[in-house]
Amino acid sequence: MKAKDLFGIDAFGTAYFTSEDNSFYKKSKDTTLVYSNFQLGEITSANTFNPLKINLFYKDFNTVVILDNRLAEIFKIDFNTLQPYKNVSFVSTGYDNTLWIFNQDLQQLELYDYKTKKIKQKTVPVQSEVLDLKSDYNQCYMLTKNYLYVYSYFGSLIAKYKNEGYEKLAFGDAYLILKKESELYTLPKDGQKIEPIKHPNLLINQFLVTNETLYLYHDETLRRYQLKSQ
């Protein structure tokens, strides 16, 4: 598999990724769909959790594009034109017509309704650099240099873990996966303890989780591992 950035693989094996020319692909066994918007430059992140409302974040242009399951553009949010102005550094999917966005100027996480152009919830500002942001309908995970924060869908802080050198995160239905250098760690969604994944040959360029399957992408090779509880 040849991809610049791999953003998602669903339960049916459909892959979501970008190419070197920054086109966004949805590729299954039978079909390949492509979305391109060269005016907005490089795709910083893509959230494919809801395949009917895929969001593409173009950080350089402070803009989010929402796509349907055929990769047709259904909504565009230009944060430069909002009042008050929002300088956004991270974006992830919320429930209904909402997005979790990190407001860089205010250093706070906000749940933004892009249809009504209103903030539904916001968190207390954080004091350290944000490294990653992921979410589903129920929870939002924000990794900073100091802590991993877990928020409910209405913005309440559920849990807080000290960051022991973790750099990025991914999650599925049962597990949160954290990356530290060339090692991966799991945090069960119903657990409290972060445990290392024991495997002798973890070559990690990009990683993601679907249900209880861990995908590792490295040097055009996609590897699949089944996560098991001991």
Rank of each mutant, 00 (worst) to 15 (best):
5 D>R: 13
6 L>D: 05
17 F>T: 00
18 T>N: 04
19 S>V: 00
26 K>Q: 14
28 S>R: 09
29 K>A: 10
30 D>W: 11
32 T>P: 01
35 Y>W: 13
37 N>V: 04
38 F>P: 02
40 L>A: 09
42 E>A: 12
43 I>A: 07
44 T>N: 07
46 A>C: 06
51 P>N: 07
55 N>K: 09
60 D>A: 15
62 N>M: 08
73 E>C: 12
73 E>Q: 15
88 V>W: 05
94 G>H: 06
94 G>S: 07
102 F>Y: 15
109 L>S: 08
114 Y>F: 15
117 K>N: 14
119 I>E: 09
121 Q>I: 00
126 V>L: 08
127 Q>N: 12
129 E>D: 11
134 K>S: 05
134 K>W: 06
138 N>H: 12
146 N>S: 15
149 Y>Q: 04
152 S>M: 10
155 G>M: 01
155 G>T: 04
159 A>F: 06
161 Y>T: 01
167 E>D: 09
170 A>E: 07
170 A>I: 06
175 Y>P: 03
186 T>M: 08
188 P>I: 05
190 D>A: 11
193 K>N: 12
196 P>N: 10
196 P>K: 14
198 K>R: 13
198 K>W: 03
201 N>V: 04
202 L>P: 01
205 N>A: 06
214 L>V: 05
218 H>D: 05
218 H>K: 12
220 E>Q: 15
223 R>E: 14
223 R>C: 00
224 R>C: 01
